[in-house]
């Protein structure tokens, strides 16, 4: 009986949190669609989220592409299928590793920053101050962050992650594994399809949405002082990462399930 009660409490608690986050998301979207708009804030967030995440995303996917090439080369040589290396690298990076790694890195960087900034604004009454200055915090703080992340993660960061990831595999394959540069590029271009790129960008947009949503939700609802900000930041990163991995599977099924 007690065991059932514990299960019940967990289920209700999960549903309660999901409901709150859902309402938060719907409210944020409704504020995105109605004026006033804050283009200056949107641009600032786009720079913060997109431009300043480029180095870490680029470096991560460059080395991942190279490591993938080494692994595929070694594995495929066991059954004389070395020629499949460029194909597996490009499909692996574009469909899966590029957007997922990019999402997880941006979750660590951006989701945490959003939760910490909004949480600090909450506990120092800056969000209350916005309200008293006739400014809706959802329009000024939440909507630009979510919109900027949905735009910048797929259109800048995932594109860069995919390109540099494939380049990492190419550089290693041509410089160390003896692959011909022209043949490698031809195989890559021949086997990369529009649906691969579409899936990659869709994943980027979905991941971007969850990264910003979790950062904003946990930051905006911070309680207490410095400890509350710390808890909000941790929760934001953990929940964003979980949602990225979960939604990655769902989007992959949507695009590629036979």
């Amino acid at each position: 009986m007690n065991f059932l009660a514990v299960i019940g409490r967990i289920v209700f608690s999960f549903l309660d949190a999901a409901g709150r986050i859902g309402i938060f998301a719907v409210t944020a979207f409704s504020h995105m669609l109605t004026p006033p708009y804050y283009p200056r804030e949107l641009f600032k967030q786009m720079m913060n989220i997109g431009y300043y995440s480029l180095p870490v995303v680029g470096l991560t996917t460059l080395f991942t592409g190279a490591a993938l090439a080494v692994n595929i080369s070694e594995g495929s040589s066991r059954f004389n299928a070395e020629s499949t290396l460029p194909i597996i690298v490009v499909i692996g990076i574009v469909r899966e590793l590029g957007p997922t790694l990019c999402g997880l890195i941006v979750a660590g960087r951006v989701s945490a920053a959003m939760a910490a900034e909004l949480g600090t604004m909450r506990v120092t009454e800056q969000i209350d101050a916005l309200t008293t200055l006739s400014t809706d915090p959802f329009k000024y703080l939440i909507a630009p962050r979510i919109l900027a992340t949905i735009i910048m993660v797929p259109l800048m960061l995932v594109v860069v992650a995919d390109t540099i990831g494939v380049m990492g595999g190419y550089l290693l394959a041509t410089s160390k594994l003896g692959y011909n540069s022209g043949n490698y590029m031809k195989a890559t271009m021949d086997f990369l399809e529009v649906i691969d790129v579409a899936a990659s960008l869709t994943k980027g947009a979905v991941f971007g949405f969850f990264i910003a949503l979790m950062g904003c939700y946990h930051g905006f609802n911070t309680r207490g002082g410095a400890q509350g900000v710390g808890i909000a930041t941790t929760n934001a990163v953990v929940s964003a990462c979980i949602m990225i991995l979960l939604s990655n599977y769902v989007v992959t099924e949507m695009f590629f399930s036979s």
């Binding site: 604004m121 120092t124 009454e125 800056q126 209350d128 101050a129 008293t132």
Partner: peptide, 10 residues
């Protein structure tokens, strides 16, 4: 207009 205890400056 409101003056907050901690200032609440952005």
């Amino acid at each position: 207009g409101m003056l907050f205890q901690g200032g609440a400056l952005f």
